[in-house]
Design a protein around this nucleic acid. Structure first.
Lengths: 227, 227, 227, 227
DNA sequence: TATGAATGAGAGTTCATTCAT
DNA sequence: GATGAATGAACTCTCATTCAT
């Protein structure tokens, strides 16, 4: 005698549906332009249920950020497996990164675009994740410097500079720059049809590894004297 | 004590005030979160006057984009003065760029963040400006390649490669990458206290000029064979 | 004391309340002067609910027009029951018409005044209804002409003219004129206290049926020669 | 040294321009939808000047009504010249009426549509004018009844009923109906291309004079007994 | 567990109207 | 005599959020 239409589902499943819908909507429209109505409809549930499970638009957005941040971090970490050379690890990490962002454009949009442009607390969530990844990259660069192998895997290395290393501050700057460049490239690769994750990664390795090599060898460009 | 409510000003002045207020508000809050009320109040006028002069939120936003795009382009062009070597011109242009974005963070936020995430027509305005700048950079790189001098201005040059040049397509790609990197760095420099425009410019010159040199010499990083 | 604020009603009921309120408000004030606030308040609900159910002022107005047009058409059709003589049917139809417009002055105001003076699409709704009714009247007049009986039901008829009939075009013109006259009379009857629906109908029958008789007999007034 | 553009004009001329613009705008858009901005622009003056001369939207509208009412009354009176037979006078009056409304559609729209649907005070202005005209028509009908000539100018008359007259109440009702019919017809004639004023007048004379004749001869349609 | 019914608050926009010159 | 500059108030419409069941 009960309604046939009602579908009771375990909480975890419902919550996942809602988050999926929310990620898609926030990712495509942005925080403000996304409406709870649209999210609820896309999730196939009523609005009060969304509030029952996720409390408010703010918390829903935060939950999206956390889930997507965790997924991305996890994907990158899974790529960077110890036991290989530093440049190989970086390469694999980049591939994982570009693959994941290409497969989850909405999630990446939330992390890269939407969360950073809407309130300190949201930005802080992303910043935390970013720092995790920067730390990972920093380790890799430092390892490469320690290993002494020239980071350019195919030119025979430059033994004379082994171990001389770079000051920690430089390494941090480089890691920062590399991550920033990767973020930029991901947006570009997602928007440009026909650019694969491996191509994006190769482009970046070329650009970065070359500059890195030069710097480790002590060569640098210096500005002209101001007039 | 405090500001007296100034009244009855010529239209041009009021319009400027409104644009100033709008740039600040849009830049900090984003298009959707910025309210016409807030803009009007910040400009010190009533809302109807904003509509009388600027017609709608859309048109007001567009006016902001145009004004800021023109100002930025102008600043960069003023920096890149012919008569110097290509690398010097690039350096000056980057300094002008980082200086301008540091001094106009709200305007830069509109161009880099807000306009690109809100509707095709807004993004198109920015894309037009960006293409102007990419073209400028492309010219500089091509000039450097023609000059035959190694782009690293302080290592004596590499006469063997003079004129061999890079294919046009490569140059365009490099320009694109360089501009993208500059955009990324500007956001970072603005957000990180203690990073001057010159430092940001130097970082980028080092990174890019070195990579450029490697590429011109035919050296590149190549990925490992997949397992 | 006074009405308790009734709450939580099924959608159909609320929607009816809103339409009632809207018909009254639009009918008395006109489309532009009626405010959604006023309608919502009269309906005893909040504005958002009106929008939730009826989408926009335009659609709400259209819904009013449709409901009132259907009600009026239905009332007239119910009056004109086949099986009686044509003049009797016309008489009953007119009575029904005047009765209905007298009992629903706001609805009639919408159909006769407001919808026709506000935008083609609204006017088209009313025109459609009007054409229905004109067609009905045309049938009745044609039937009367076919019956051959003089339309004056109490003067013994005029056998000599049986079947000679009127050209179709004339009949259509007469129907148009009769409906137009009825519309005018309805407004007048509503505005003049002490004029019953039956009186209005009788006045019109006298006026129209006599003219119709004259025309069928070929008598007509002709203008003097211009000076 | 003064500005060439300023055109000083005598008050009467300016006021006329404003009224012309107002009549056109009110007539086409209706009271609410007409904006003072549009009127001022159409009149070629600034808004404050409109307020200086005509005080408010309400007063401006009233001024329009009065001017157009006076013009219409004047036109009809000029048509109805004593010395002719009653039906001829009525005919000329109708011609004048239809001609004037056709030549001043905006003014007629104000009188017939707009003023009557916006507030008692506006409607009262029109009612006053209408009563003037109804009185005029009443006189003509009464005169026709007194003259004893059958109102049907071309069928030889019906001497038997001369002077028997109609009760005053009947005459008033007829005049009312005739004026109402004329109003309806005017709107229809204006909206239908190819219908001249004379045609509209002839249509109405035919319709009305015939019914009037029948009534004067004591023939009338009577309703069936209610069930 | 799940939802139909309902709203307070605020968004963008327009308009009649008035100063100050 | 004439106007550029300016606004209070009201309008249509949307949205995050909550009851009552």
């Amino acid at each position: 005698m009960g309604s046939v239409k009602t579908k009771r589902m375990p909480r975890a499943v419902r919550e996942r549906q809602m988050l999926d819908a929310a990620v898609q909507t926030f990712g495509r429209r942005g925080y403000m332009a996304a409406s709870m109505d649209e999210i609820a409809e896309l999730a196939g549930v009523s609005k009060p249920l969304v509030y029952l499970y996720l409390n408010s638009k703010d918390e829903l957005f935060t939950a999206c950020i956390r889930r997507e941040a965790a997924a991305l971090t996890e994907a990158v970490r899974a790529g960077v497996r110890p036991g290989f050379s530093a440049d190989r690890q970086l390469w694999e990490g980049l591939c994982a990164f570009f693959t994941h962002t290409a497969q989850n454009p909405d999630g990446w949009s939330i992390l890269h675009l939407r969360a950073r442009t809407h309130g300190e607390s949201f930005a802080a969530e992303v910043t935390a994740m970013r720092e995790d990844i920067v730390a990972l990259v920093t380790q890799l660069i430092a390892a490469a410097a320690r290993d002494g192998g020239s980071p350019c895997s195919n030119d025979g290395g430059n033994p004379g500079h082994r171990g001389s290393g770079l000051p920690e501050r430089e390494i941090a700057g480089l890691a920062e720059a590399l991550v920033g460049a990767a973020e930029s490239l991901a947006a570009w690769a997602n928007a440009t049809p026909g650019v694969s994750a491996r191509q994006a990664a190769a482009t970046l390795m070329n650009f970065a590894w070359a500059g890195l090599g030069n710097l480790m060898e002590g060569r640098s460009w210096s500005p002209p004297e101001p007039d």
